[in-house]
Design a binder for these strands. Structure first.
Lengths: 232, 232
DNA sequence: TTAATATTGTGTCAATAATACACAATTAGT
DNA sequence: ACTAATTGTGTATTATTGACACAATATTAA
């Protein structure tokens, strides 16, 4: 089994920031720990990598345990590896963030993990280096969403442009010009008019669009400049 | 020592793609292995993370062993963790790329590691998943260099705009319009005219510039769009 | 000494994109 | 039908990009 002699073997964990959007604020899932160490304190969802488990498989497993969802959009951020980052025993943690439609996840899965949605603005203190992880995740989300059509992952299948705008305003905590935003989004040709309207609205009902999945996947890595530099 | 019971501990390695530029072509350092496994074959420079060694410290150690340089620019790419990626024993590898001035590194350090510079265009087959790592490193370098002034890390302290242009042409394997490139670079105000000239040139000698270090560090994360989308 | 050659620095112009706005249309509730 | 809130679309100005031309500098060879 151990064929490289005299080498150190370490615990390898994954920790995940799950972002969601409720129509008003950017939210994330955190866990109230009901186990030691740090029982009762807040942490990110995580888990150890199994002996015969690929890293990607472990990430999907952890996201599934938390949300009951498969094929979630997620992205690696950084591997945290300070010697004493976990005071119990040295653990390397591969940190990633995931984006989900907040209304689509399984409530029971979240409950079983003791998970709660909180607004990024009221984030409590988290254990270990998890605060640093969240800061980096938000930074990466902002970076990525400014250039690539990543925001759609946080919305339902059908959504209006005002909804999308509110999402961007929540991500960047900054107002966006309605007219210019709409023009930019429509010029990408990523949206298909469903000819339905947003019935939730109390005044003029906005047109609901869906993603052009083909184009979305083909052009995902293209630059779009959704958000101007000064706002990021 | 082992305080999380029943959990798997894994070997944790680092593997590094070191890029350099000789004035004509984009190059990288690879190792001819004189040890088993895969003795005689080509691989990336790497090493295991020590028992009491921070990840960042290990990365700097490995880069120092290879190049004799400290404070090198490097950036994490991804952590590779397929179960059977190392056929000898399961090993997680944190992959990163580094950029150095090819003329500044220590030849003896490279020799002691059995390292050689090769052009990206003549890259031989590498062991394990190292080919995949190089592909990803090049992709990340192209992405990053298109938006951020990362290219300067590959040049000497004093360099001309034509030199910088040749570097970008090498990175993207594509010709660049001289006039527009020059305008774009100068408009960033990142360059300071040293009022010296490039004596290597056989015709009109180009002006040598140096980096405005202050501005470089302050605006590193600003978007610059050095390279148009169609070229990346 | 001058002409030829290669390369560098700078300039122009049209097309495109970004920014800052204004106005008309839709819907629910008075 | 009038009001209030919100949505969809338009327009004028400014800034940036992309395609191109030309003059200046340095070396080499006639």
């Amino acid at each position: 089994m151990e064929k490289y002699p005299n080498k150190t073997r370490l615990l390898v964990a994954l920790d995940c920031i799950v972002f969601g959007f409720d129509g008003e604020e950017l939210k994330m899932l955190i866990i109230k720990r009901n186990f030691e160490p740090e029982k009762g304190n807040w942490s990110l969802m995580g888990g150890f990598v199994g002996k015969e488990e690929d890293l990607e498989v472990a990430a999907n497993r952890i996201l599934y345990e938390l949300t009951g969802l498969k094929d979630i959009y997620f992205e690696e951020i950084k591997t945290f590896g300070k010697v004493s980052r976990d005071p119990v025993e040295r653990t390397i943690s591969i940190c990633f963030f995931a984006l989900i439609n907040i209304h689509a996840h399984d409530q029971d899965s979240a409950k079983s993990q003791n998970a709660f949605w909180i607004s990024l603005k009221n984030k409590p203190n988290l254990i270990f280096d998890h605060n640093e992880m969240v800061d980096l995740a938000l930074e990466k989300l902002r970076y990525k969403a400014a250039l690539h059509p990543i925001g759609f992952e946080l919305l339902p299948d059908k959504f209006s442009i005002p909804q999308l705008q509110k999402l961007y305003e929540a991500i960047y905590d900054n107002p966006v010009d309605r007219r210019n935003f709409s023009r930019k989004i429509l010029s990408t040709n990523l949206l298909i008019d469903t000819s339905e309207k947003d019935e939730k609205s109390t005044t003029k009902k906005a047109i609901l669009y869906k993603l052009n999945q083909d184009k979305y996947q083909r052009q995902f890595n293209a630059f779009h400049y959704f958000i101007s530099e000064s706002m990021r």
